[in-house]
Amino acid sequence: MLLSVLVYGFINSVILAMVALGFSITFGISRVANFSHGGFYILGGIFTWYGLIKLGMPYFLSAGLSIIIIGALGALMYKVILIRLRGLELSEVIATLSLGIVILELLRGLGVFGYEFRNPVFMDGSVDILGVGVGIQRIIIVCAGALLLILLHFFVHHTKMGLAFRGVAQQEHTALSVGINPDLVSMLSLAMGSVMCALSAVLILPLGVISVDEGYDILIKALAVCIIGGLESTLGVLVAAFIIGYIEVLTSMYISSALTSVVPLACMLGILLVRPSGIFGKSKEIEERV
């Protein structure tokens, strides 16, 4: 029992972290809160499904294509919509939220509902870990998540592009004055966030059915994790993902699975009451106190 909590909590946490990272990366670099995250997530899954089932493409081709398409969509959203609204936080939020809702409700209207909308797992079967049977798909998710994190860390800290990203995140105007184009960087950050979103969709969606409500669910979870961890801190997102991930699994195993949905909400409100900028949010005490 305890071992299965350990294993499943870990997997749950990695899933949460992957979903939240895409949002937090975009926000951390360009200050754009991409509320169409949930929409992109489901769209990524649906594109993969369409390529795979309807067009008969090989799995990895279809998945890869849909990841690229979603990335391009993120960049396009910046280029067409957000660039006109830069600096108007409220308008940015409303624009991305409305785009997300357009995507999700459009899919609902087109009849994306039911058991047929389902991506197959990469590989069948299960493995024993610490005496607990775990599906291979879940193991792939954990490995991919770890790989993604390492790549991300390398990219941000050891490449020129990553340096430019960090520059824009810290001081947009200074970055501009040393020859970095903040618009380009912001566009790329949106593309990157969207790619990560689609990637997690491709990996995670085979565990369940593709449904519109899942899109809202993912958005909620990603936001809750980011809020608890501190919106722009990658470390915070990881820690928060593990906190919520384990508490969720613990609640469903020991108390009642019906109460699982209460966990993120209660965690979030509790944390906000104590530390308004999240566990690892940057020290903005003045903002906190007022």
Partner: peptide, 13 residues
């Protein structure tokens, strides 16, 4: 204690 975007995010969810 939050303002701007942070407040919006929380009220949305």
């Amino acid at each position: 204690g939050l303002r701007g975007i942070y407040f919006s995010v929380v009220t949305l969810i």
